[in-house]
Design a protein around this nucleic acid. Sequence first.
RNA 1: GCACCGGUAGCUCAGCUGGAUAGAGCACCAGACUACGAAUCUGGGGGUCAGGGGUUCGAAUCCUCUCCGGUGCGCCA
Length: 580
Amino acid sequence: MNLFAEIRGLVLDALSGMVADGALPPDLDIAVVSVEPPRDPGHGDMATNAAMALAKPARMAPRALAEALAPRLAADHRVETAEVAGPGFINLRLASSVWRNAVRAALEAGPLFGRSEMGAGRRVNVEFVSANPTGPLHVGHTRGAVFGDALAALLRFAGWEVTREYYVNDGGAQVDVLARSAYLRYREARGEAVEIPAGLYPGDYLKPVGEALSEQFGDDLMDLPEESWLPDVREFAVERMMDAIRADLDLLGVRMDRFFSERALYDTGLIEAALKRLDEAGLIHVGVLEPPKGKTPEDWEPRPQTLFRSTAYGDDIDRPLKKSDGQWTYFAPDIAYHFDKIERGYDLLIDVFGADHGGYVKRMKAAVAALSAERTPLDIKLIQLVRLFKDGEPYKMSKRAGSFVTLRDVIEEVGPDVTRFVMLMRKNDAPLDFDFRKATEQSKDNPVFYVQYAHARVASMLRLGAEAGVATEDRALAAADLSLLAHPAQLALAKKVAEWPRQVEQAAASFEPHRVAFFLNDVASAFHALYNLGRDEPALRVVQPDDPAGTAARLALARAVSVVIAAGLGILGVTPAEQM
RNA sequence: GCACCGGUAGCUCAGCUGGAUAGAGCACCAGACUACGAAUCUGGGGGUCAGGGGUUCGAAUCCUCUCCGGUGCGCCA
């Protein structure tokens, strides 16, 4: 239950009351009325802009409207004071029982505290990673994987039904290159001295694939022409690469619900079906594209091409569907793939792309709009690049893959929890600096430990409380006499707990899991502050063996904090620590 | 040339989708462990929100122009 939404309901009721009394004209647009925490806590617990937002349509002065509205709000038992301030804000101070109830609600709901029904069971497909099956995942993929996974978890927590999906690009020229590279490693495994020519994949990670091919086929492939061995080797190598990728994702704690094969699209006729749909809508034509201004490719020559009229849906130019040799461009199967997602009946599609695919956004949105008759929204989240550092120096080389740092390199060095949390501390569309040294140091430069420490501290208190003879199960703590929580610092912390459901909804509504990470930092900070107050004011110490009732109440508050932290870390995919 | 993303404290970044005096961490300065876990806390200095113009009760947030950085721009995915 989102307390802010609840109080907003109270404001709206009060406004309706004023309409009924003739104090306000009917048909006001109440969508603009908001209830938010004021920036300055000194102003109260919540503030509403209702008077200012409605002043003009109601043809009243903002402050006059506020003066009329405030007493109606103050009449509610949850509201202690309602004061008009500034240009027409109404600042609300809520009864402390409201905050105590939030603590109790957290204990009763446990891991489900903060869950929202906002998604209302609607179905969303989150496609992420989707790296080419030609090698191990690198750091860039890692960020996309972490983001997509956390976004999926967040939406699920907010009441969506979520599918995590990976599109396997196993149909293009790049997997033929993979097959040729693997074939050379195969010859190498058969005892031949090989050199990997430019244009093929040189990484050592293909050596085991070559050896496995050697084991499976013996000398059978040695004297065959390429067209004979290529399909088998390709399938073999792609499977091996996908196994490796799945293992990499597993290290990160990412599990996909579905891997969707591009190659399968060719066999099922789905590409033709999708393009037929576009053709029937008059969105396919043959035309000649203008060369890009300012940077004309040297071998540019005007050429008639089969084009998708993406300009009809806001793209800058129409996009080619066929190469000059008659093959599909990569765009054509991608259209078909999204057509399939639409046909599967999702209410929302989300694609997580690397920022280098930013130029692809408009055409993909155009395709989905056209194929779904603008019924299926597509949101595309771009993930900016990760810059790796070690002791402040740029860090590029990998022991394993040579030219790039792999996901496995990162996980082995800093572990999944730190990797995930650090990568989720940034907005997806801002570049991210990742310093290996800081991440491994486990110092205060490392925000993960700050949050985990708070969680571990609560666990420690619960252990001490139990030793002192206090029942520390959530159910028992929920029954404690919470009216013993009266100190402003305690109530301030309870307010943080009460904010969690709202934070979930806001993060989910904007598809921004990083907000969860920032909020957890906030909660941890408020908790640590209260804890340290106990040094100067012994009455605030949580565990006091000579005061079982008070200890139970304070433990209830502490446990509510750890409930929120555990729930938030659960969304981020980070382990909440019991001890450190 | 065009498109997309970014520009907020010395550094790294938030800023609740238009609200009140713009925040946090790091760094720097001064403090708090015989005390429930000091991986913590308290206090302090530090800003032309890249710049100009506009929209309105009110702009870091929306519109527009300029500057700077990143990414992309038919037959790579």
